[in-house]
Design a protein around this nucleic acid. Structure first.
Lengths: 125, 125
DNA sequence: TATAGTGTTATAGTTAAGTATAACACTGGT
DNA sequence: ACCAGTGTTATACTTAACTATAACACTATA
């Protein structure tokens, strides 16, 4: 996972989005524990309270469950409901704006297809 | 233009983006004056300082020019340089993440193509 | 029973974004 | 000379995001 943060959104929302991505990619499976608040805070050099805020948002969304003294765990059905909800959000709230932008910039299918997604980037060496 | 604001980005950046969109769409042409700070502030019910901040960002980018006591005007070549720079930003910084999301959500071309962009929405009745 | 690991709460401070109000300096047209 | 319209600056305040430090409550395990 990347240690860098974007200044276009608060860290706690970006972190929430990363956990969501890991659930969707099944890097985190249902029943798995989330990495602990302190671990994440130390690794990414951010404040434990910021991490907690991300995690509590996931709890509010019903995606994870807290077990006192043990940690936070991914709920059953989390991936399923995430797929539904994130798809809806993307198609209704993001994609229309993206299409506008593409049209406005006059970008062709070729230009778009030839750009590889970030995950496929390879080391230089 | 829409009077609503998104809470995912500061207003001054959203306003900057709207002006940029109008330049790209040629709703504002080179040499044209921007609507005045006070006009925009009144119409969108936001603070004049917030509008000013957007405008100064455009000035910093070299897209508009200030004429004391007269207003701010769109520079020659603004659309050209915007097309270049916004294309680069989109292709390098946004599109790769968007492709990741699309892949992660397992969205098909059909689902994406069938969503109309916002500009094509029609009134209900 | 001690200890180290969980999440959680408390207190206090900084910074950025936005608001509210008011004033200043310049320009063009009457 | 006036005046209404420009951008700009000053002062002061609120809120959200984030940080820093410390402590609390619970749980499993040695």
């Amino acid at each position: 996972m990347d240690r860098e943060w974007n200044d276009s959104q608060p860290i706690y929302r970006q972190l929430r989005d990363r956990v969501v991505a890991m659930i969707l990619d099944e890097a985190l499976k249902e029943g798995d524990p989330l990495p602990s608040v302190r671990t994440v805070a130390a690794e990414y050099r951010i404040n434990p309270l910021t991490v907690l805020k991300s995690y509590q948002q996931l709890a509010d969304e019903g995606l994870v469950e807290t077990r006192r003294g043990r940690g936070m765990f991914i709920n059953a059905g989390a991936r399923e409901s995430l797929l539904r909800e994130e798809r809806r959000k993307f198609l209704e709230e993001e994609w229309p704006r993206i299409r506008e932008t593409i049209a406005r910039l006059g970008l062709s299918s070729d230009e778009l297809i030839s750009m590889k997604p970030k995950t496929e980037q390879e080391p230089e060496s």
